[in-house]
Write a protein that binds this DNA or RNA. Structure first.
Lengths: 209, 209
DNA sequence: ACCTGAACACCGTTCAAGT
DNA sequence: ACCTGAACACCGTTCAAGT
């Protein structure tokens, strides 16, 4: 088809010098390195070896690219969480702890990206709801096992709210009053899990009643 | 002094056409209306009746102005929370509920500002730690009453993490799987309060053990 | 069909010149 | 002492022109 056009004297085909995937990957690296403000079309273009105007062949706008970058990050987080919810050899309590720790580890390794997933700068850059649903499915499943089906959604919301809130405040440097942050994480997780767990509490203090 | 300069032929004084407070107020209005991206120096300048370069007599940079706006918002939130912690006629449990509801109400009325307090776009725009400490003091006090002095800090962190996480996800539109969001707030708050309350649980389910 | 330079309308910021 | 226009170095985005 392109040869036909060429022979006929139609528009000249040229081999693609980049791809959408390469552009999004470049965007992820730049965001991780320099923050969202560092993500300029010119820098992305330079990173993939073209000029800025060429990017508009693959993305609609900078906002569009930001959204794609956030979605790619959310999908990777989901990919890390999926196997935890699927393991059958651990109980819900352990699975919850693994999931929270994995999420926190991801947030620490990619703080900017995590912040963008949780709080996209503008509405136009918010990730697709299906992508977010995919990333939160594992927790919903574990919450169901822990709190029972009828309370699964409410329990999942309580758990995510605490977990994401803790991690976000930690990343924002809001916990500056001293004290042991690891203990706050561990104890907080145990408290929240106890609160949601219909089978009863299991932390030392609670069992001491 | 200015008259002396004038008489001597020194630099001519001119009456100030704006002030730092007016600039910060204009910034708050613009942020509330158009988001952080809408906060341009030109727009702020137009709003206070000068040209953009004149703003640099009062603020160091746009980032500096953004920080001042965030700090002003954090101080206002703190001003709303202070009286709750000081009331002696209500118990800690009720105070916690009032504080959480007031915070949520502030977040709903000023969603952009609340997001900025929790997750400032860049490090340079993060509010001063004293300002944040002021805003979190009421919760710390209530947490102390609820969980006991030795667990006050950890309890406060658990409570803020849940509260801010819930509100932030709500603002970001992350709770899209249906269900009753008000119930999730009420029940979540009760669960968390129970978890932190050393005096024992008080929700229906917990007391049903 | 893709890529590019040039251009446009915006930014933040600086600075000499006005009063 | 404050304010301003002009200028500079950046942006995102468009588009006619190249191949």
């Amino acid at each position: 088809m392109s040869i036909v056009n060429f022979v006929k004297g139609g528009p000249m085909p040229t081999p693609d010098r980049t791809s959408l995937a390469e552009i999004v990957d470049a965007g992820r690296s730049i965001v991780a390195e320099s923050g969202i403000a560092g993500l300029t079309m010119q820098r992305v273009a330079a990173s993939v070896g073209v000029r800025a105007p060429s990017l508009y062949k693959r993305v609609r706008s900078r906002d569009d690219l930001v959204r794609l970058v956030i979605e790619a990050e959310a999908l990777e987080l989901g990919r890390r969480l999926d196997p935890i919810a699927e393991r059958a050899d651990i109980d819900a309590r352990t699975a919850l702890s693994d999931l929270a720790t994995t999420t926190r580890g991801y947030a620490h390794s990619r703080p900017v990206a995590f912040g963008l997933i949780l709080a996209p700068p503008h509405a136009g850059e918010a990730p697709d709801r299906d992508v977010l649903a995919r990333a939160s499915a594992p927790l919903l499943r574990i919450a169901g096992e822990l709190a029972g089906k009828e309370h699964a959604l409410t329990a999942a919301r309580t758990l995510t709210a605490w977990m994401n809130g803790f991690i976000m405040m930690e990343l924002a440097g809001a916990f500056r009053l001293g004290g042991d942050l690891e203990q706050a994480w561990e104890l907080g997780l145990a408290w929240i899990a106890d609160a949601v767990d219909r089978r009863g509490a299991s932390t030392e203090r609670a069992s001491g009643w």
